[in-house]
Structure formats: C-alpha cells, structure tokens
Design a protein around this nucleic acid. Sequence first.
RNA 1: GCGCCCGUAGCUCAACCUGGAUAGAGCGUUGGCCUGCGGAGCCAAAGGCUACAGGUUCAAAUCCUGUCGGGCGCGCCA
Length: 550
Amino acid sequence: MLIGILKKAVKEAIKRWGKIPHWEVFSFDITVPPSEKLGDYATNAALLLAKEVGETPQKVAEELLPYLEQEGIAERIEIARGGFINFFLKQEILEKVIRAVNSQGDEYGFPNIGGGKRVQIEFVSANPTGPLSVAHGRGAVIGDVLANLFSRLGYEVSREYYINDYGSQIDAFAKSIYARYAQLWGKDVPIPEDGYKGDYVKDLAVRIREELGDKLLDLSEENLRVFKERGVELMVDSHKRTLERFGVKFDNWFKESSLHKASQVQKTLEVLRDKGLIFEMDGALWFRSTLFGDDKDRVLVRSDGTFTYFAADLAYHRDKFERGFARVIDIWGPDHYGYVGRMMAGIRALGYGEEWLRILIFQVVRLVREGELIMMSKREGEFVTLDELVDEVGKDAARFFYLLRTLDSPLDFDMTLAVKQAPENPVYYVQYAHTRIHSILREAEKRGIELENVFSANLELLKEEKEKALIKKLGEFPTLVGITHSSLEPYNIVRYSLELAKIFHNFYEMHRVITDDEELTNARLQLMMATIRVLRNCLSLLGVEAPEKM
RNA sequence: GCGCCCGUAGCUCAACCUGGAUAGAGCGUUGGCCUGCGGAGCCAAAGGCUACAGGUUCAAAUCCUGUCGGGCGCGCCA
C-alpha cells in the first residue's frame, strides 16, 4: 500500500514535470534502499528518465524534486549519488497502513481484480494406479495456495483434478489387481511385466474380494473392466482422502475416459484436420505442431489406431476452453518438462492464445532425514507416500515446507527440521509470532482493556524504529499479493510471512506493548491488532493454522 | 550429437525474466541478552573476485558469446 502510494506520487510528479509525453505508461520501480538510513523507500525513476531525455540522472532528480515534495507524502526527500531518489515518509502516511489493515480486516491486501472472472487451476492429476507421492504433495500445495489467492482476489476459481483412467497403464493396473486377486484364491497368477507390484495392489484385491467374492476369477474382458473401474475408483477415493487430510479440496474430478466416451478426442482431431494441421505418415496421424513452435511434429493416432495421451490432452484443454474459463493454469511435475512445448503448440493451433494457458513446472522433491537423503525407488515399491509424510510432520509443516523454495528450485524436504519445536524451524517461527501476539491481546483483556477502544488511540506515539519497520512491512502486504498474483510463486508468501514474523519478534524483544502509559499501550495494541491480522491473512492463504496457543 | 536448465557465503537458497546504491536471507559458527506481555525468542560478529574468459553499457550476479563443471529432455510411454 505504501509502495502504491509512492508510485502514484512519483507518477504525478513526472506528469507535472512535463518532459515526457508518455508519462502515463512510463514504468519505474519503488524499492527498499540498501540501508534504512538512506530512507524508507526509493525510486530509480530519475535514472530511467535520464535515458529518455538525454540528461544526467542527477539533473533529472533535481528537477523532479520540487514536484515530489509537493505531493506531501514525505517529510524528507533526498537525492543520492547516482540519481536515486530516497523518501523518508511522513508519520501520517505510515499511520494510514494500520488504519487500513484494521478497518479492512481480512479484505486487506485483496482488491477485487478478478471481477468474477473464471479461472481454472488443474493440479496433482496423479495417475490412479498408485498412492500419492511426496512430489504430488508439492504440486498440491502450489495449486491450492494459488487457488486461495485467486479466489481472495475476486476470481471464481475451480480446482480441478484430471484422472488418467484410460490407456495401457490402466490395463496393466487392472491386470495387476487381478493377479493379486487370483492369488488370494490360491491361484498362481503372476503380476505382468509392466504391472504394479506395490502392496497397495493387494489391499485393492482384498477389498474387491470382500465386495464381489469369487465372481471375477476367470479373466474375461468383462471382469477385467470391473477391476479397472473399481480399481480406479478406490484409488481415486484414496487420493481424495489423502488430499483432504492435507487441506486440499477439489471442485471437479475430471475423467479422461469421459472424453473418449463423448468422442471428444476424435472431434478435436477433426478440428485440427479442418485447419490443415493433420498429416499421415508411417500409418499414424500426426499433428504439425512444428508450425506452432514445437521442435517436432507429434503423433495423435498411433498406427494401431489408438489415440496418444497427447491427443486426449488436447481434447481435454479444448473442453476446458469450451467450459468458458477465462484463464487456465496447469501445474505439472518435472517429468513433464518436455511436454510443455507440444501442449502450447496445441493451444496456439486451436487458436486460444498463449495467454490463456499457463503451465507451471515445479522441480523435484527429495526427502532428508537426520541429514541423510532418503532414496526412493518407485520400481522397488519403496517410497514415502504423501500420507506418510503428513503422518510424520503434520499438515501445517508439510504445506509450509513445500513452499520454502521457488518452483524452479529442487526441494530438499527436511523431515527432521519440520517436526522440531525450535526456532530454526520456519513454520514454528511464524506460528509462534502469531501465538505471542495473541498472548499479548489476551493479557490486555485480562487487565481490563477493551480491545475495541484501542482503535481510537493516537498512532503518532508509534515513533520507535522497530514500530516503523513493522508498519512498513504491513504496508507491503498488498504489494506481495500483487507480486504473487503475477509471478505465480507461492514461495513469496512464505518468505513474506517469515520476514514479518522476524520484524515482529524483533519489536517484541525491544519494547513492551502493555505498560503504565495508557495511550502508548493503546497505540501499540492497535499495531498488534494489525500485525496479527496480516499474519492471519498470510497463513490463511497458505492453508496453515494460526494457533492461539502452542 | 541436438535442445533446454543450472553454477551466488561452510550448507540450503533469494535477487536474474524487466541491468542500477554497499549482492540479501535462513541454517551453521563465534560472542552477548531472561526479576515484567510465552526464551518455541532477540542482538552482534565473522563469512563473497556471483564457476571461468571475453563482449555490450554511464552501470552486469542480471543481457550476449565462448570455456569448464552438474542436471534434464530428445518414444507411435504417461
């Protein structure tokens, strides 16, 4: 909010300075100076304007200065070496932040920029042939937090999960369950070469035996279909349960098979054929994706007449478009990296415009315990599931830790640290800040202070450096929201919450809130109310609890 | 071989897209801080030729080229 105010002021000053006609579209930065001695905020506007008008930055800054001063937001404005302009904000501007937070409450920082526009976020979308892994967990949190954010910003958000319940891997899955099922009846049926060997397949077989007895013993087409459908259903149910424990709920579970049933894959093929983008080669049907930026053309129909996964995925995205989503975000794991090019080519070919779809790829997750990497091999059936991770570290720590790195960065998930009740554990650090503030408010009420009354306190009394730092940080929350909205990096929220917690703890150690000075106490309580508000807004975006006691 | 990504403090990472001030955090290390709102906390210090070499620029961790080192992709798999 402070940065917004400054941006507006600088823009206004540039306008009245009058040397560039396109002042309205001219863009510059508001930054935090390297040292707080230099100022509260700074702008590089003069450096950039210097280039435009062919003057030195210093000279431009000097010319701009009187106009900036007229804006009346700073008690002091300084021109630094090199042409940076530094602002020392007026106290009354800082006070505005606290008032805004306390009056807007959980709306603070969330303007309605979505205006009800429909956005779909598709994530996790794990194959229904095995339990969710820790990698799926990363995608789950990223998608869920982005969905939270977009929905707070006034978008109508739909969280969608795509179920790959079609194709050869599902057939292998069904046969694997059948093998386990037959084994339960003492038959020696081996699991197929490309089958699934994990113990969970046995559990599925047991479950199906309970439901249907021995009716499925001969491997007919019809019986295999039962294993397929029931197996997928049970698997999807278990995914659903795991995700709910993890705080993630989907609005729509979309089956790939529904596209095939409704001939949507065939229809999509026809759409591309009408555009002249389909050709035949080696007995297969190809999509000329190279015309749209892909590095090679792609097969849509194999020479045996079956559709590729890609063909179905094109139909899926066509379906998303026809459902009327203004914007779609797909969140994929690192193994799909090579898939982005062809998907985007498909989107362009279908004429949806590349702004419409955004594909986010996150990097691998590795688990670390006691400083040692936990090796996981899917083939051996030895891997830690998302369920086990949540069992071990809890929902809050799991969600928070998943967001400790940018999407681009591989994540080493430190399970030992995640459960540690110690200051070096970042999630406890942030939650503890919340608890501490809550404890202060509790203490105030115990002493008979009406918290409703502190809103009329005189905020001019908040003159300490730590108080100012805290207020500035609170004022940056809307900026953070804006940055996350455009960068699609939920990591930013985690980092901000850590910074805010740090500044609060810092303040807490230096100053008491509740003192004999009634006016000062009230002013500081008002600051605490604002801080706890913003902290809660952060944690609610992250889907992490804000405990009152720990 | 072709293509893409990465190389920043002892460790794990930000900042790179959109070039700007003294390259930031956390952990770890060292040294301090509890008679009052929760010490699950705070403060301070040390620690960097941003892999290397060129180039562009008034200005490069950031943009360009090359070298070295690491990872990934290059199926009519999903």
